[in-house]
Amino acid sequence: MNELILLVPEAPAPDAPAAVIEERGLLHAELRLGILDNSKANADHLLRMVAERVRADYAVKSLLTLRKSSVAMAARPEVIEQLANDCDLVFSAMAD
């Protein structure tokens, strides 16, 4: 049977550098932890529990908790900037 050559419709994800915790030496430092609450019901409770679990296993220097004003909208640039500047590790994105 003959073969067809077809064009692939799928566009790959743009290249993004993977963040590897070991390479950044975070496991040996005091973590600056961040939480971005997406404002869905119970997000605050779950994310707080995640943060407490991290505290149990790692040295946590600080915890910054911020909240999106709308679950359906991207976080404002100043929120992202603050998390990027003040945190080594950020937990986000949950649904109720």
């Binding site: 049977m1 003959n2 073969e3 067809l4 050559i5 077809l6």
Partner: peptide, 18 residues
């Protein structure tokens, strides 16, 4: 485009296979 990796796929010239 055709010179890019994974831009094409080969398949039998058969409706069901495609």
């Amino acid at each position: 485009f055709l010179n890019e990796a994974k831009s094409t796929v080969r398949v039998a010239d058969d409706h069901v296979a495609v």
